[in-house]
Design a protein around this nucleic acid. Sequence first.
DNA 1: CTAGATTGCTTAGAGTCATTAAGGAAACAT
DNA 2: ATGTTTCCTTAATGACTCTAAGCAATCTAG
Lengths: 238, 238
Amino acid sequence: MSAHTSRRERLRQATLEEIHAAARKLLVERGSAAVTINAVARQVGMSGPALYHYYAGHDELVGAVTADFFRELAAVMEQARDVRADAPIGDRILAVCRAMRAWATTHPAEFGWIFASPIAPPNRRPESVRHQAAVRFERVLLDLMIELWRTRPFPVPDPDGLPASLREQVTAYSAAIGGRLPPEAAHVFLSCWIRLYGLLCMEVLHQLDFAYTDLEPVFEECLRELAVTVGIDYHAAA
Amino acid sequence: MSAHTSRRERLRQATLEEIHAAARKLLVERGSAAVTINAVARQVGMSGPALYHYYAGHDELVGAVTADFFRELAAVMEQARDVRADAPIGDRILAVCRAMRAWATTHPAEFGWIFASPIAPPNRRPESVRHQAAVRFERVLLDLMIELWRTRPFPVPDPDGLPASLREQVTAYSAAIGGRLPPEAAHVFLSCWIRLYGLLCMEVLHQLDFAYTDLEPVFEECLRELAVTVGIDYHAAA
DNA sequence: CTAGATTGCTTAGAGTCATTAAGGAAACAT
DNA sequence: ATGTTTCCTTAATGACTCTAAGCAATCTAG
């Protein structure tokens, strides 16, 4: 499937990497509006339309670069998980969340780009590289929560206490993840996800600048609450 | 200060309104990328450069339209508050939050535009119309929380339990709002704000589509938690 | 009521962007 | 050695931002 590494293929891969690097450089240095086909091509040393041999258009380039970011973010989180493969599950969860924020804050342009850039219809299709990479990212924490649920189930709300509409939706989601979390546990996971990811989202989009200059302690507070919610030990970063 | 309503001034105001309406129409019908100087001018029936007599450029037009949206959102929230001027403070808080989400979900393009559109440097300046309108929006819930704090103080964490950095920041924010909430209470307010606004932010940016089709019950759940946090009675919408 | 300034618009034009089309040259396969 | 594929170029279209120059209607003052 993979290494049909002809000379041509290798050159093509190298060019693709150069293109992605150029796009990223433009994004970081001059903002998302600067990531244009022409500007990227100029940066790489080709002229304009040459890029169409690599991507069908601007949307596809954007999707590919976004997928890169998702993959890099997921890799950072997976690494935080794997270097502690023998640590308690709670520690690994905290480490993964911190790795997520660390990447977000050290790469604000990239992280902001991930959700603030409008998702073109082709990139919405489940088979798009962007979507695949996003799923991989989302699964890192999900898998850990599944492991936690299996080894040390956390307290869940009474499903009958949830509104019918919500119960239906978390049940559908529970099925979508292969039933590896029951609906009530899926609900708890989603609540945690919303809090963590939502906080980062607001931080990077500068929606909290009016009150905070540094959201690290706010994030830690959020982690502390998460720890209580899913019954793991909170302790500060190593 | 205001009604220097010369004939010219009135015409100018009418044109400005027409411009804003055209920009909004384009945003809603064809997405944020369609809101260009040229397209807006065409819609209004002028040709291109004429718009520069009204706005210095694209950024300023975007800022003005964004300010419109903030003002409309704030007005809807203020109205939800004022039609219940005699209701218990807790009811008014819930009503204002629901009004915020109702506007967000009935005007997803506008609400998304509010934070997903990059904030050009000129619109970051505190004296910009965009910033002024954003402040008015943020103050609606803040003022109610201040009233709640004055009439029926809610439980607050021990300030000594907060990390030093966080304590400093909420203290600064407390001062910035004229000390109308002490730092610990400001911290509680900000936590609530982050949860509510963050949830809407994620909803509108389609960051939760992978799990939910309708976030209304999730938002209500969030309101229920908020009610517990600040000690008001939760009950479903009227 | 009539000059002079102001205001609201126009067209022209420079520079950028996305995208398509047409063609040349290098690399590859047979 | 030849024909195909691949990579890249230039040319061209149409849209966009924004500046410049200029005309005409409207206000302001005398």
